[in-house]
């Protein structure tokens, strides 16, 4: 296996992980806890945005993130010729 190719693949993977985890942290720790006081004015039905993110919304975001990552990684695997 060509080592140079794999390091490009690994760097791309790490970049993707970094982006996904930034969103992961912003939605749960950020909107759900730390920034909740600043988001009180925004309502999702009968709940304020921070409360809703903490008890519902962040779970939906986590789901989207995992499937997005799995889909992107399949493309990356093929692009770099490292798929199974």
């Amino acid at each position: 296996m060509a080592n140079k190719d794999n390091s490009a693949y690994w760097a791309a993977n790490k970049r993707l992980i970094f982006i996904c985890l930034a969103i992961w942290a912003f939605c749960s720790y950020g909107m759900g806890i730390i920034f909740r006081p600043f988001l009180m004015g925004i309502k999702i039905g009968g709940a304020d945005l921070g409360f809703w993110m903490a008890q519902q919304g962040s779970i939906y975001v986590f789901l989207i993130l995992i499937f997005f990552y799995a889909w992107r990684m399949n493309k990356l695997d093929q692009k770099h010729g490292v798929e199974e």
Binding site: L21, W24, S58, I66, Y69, A70
Partner: peptide, 8 residues
């Protein structure tokens, strides 16, 4: 949220 870490 732990599953995001697990998957990645």
């Amino acid at each position: 949220g732990g599953y995001v870490l697990l998957a990645m």
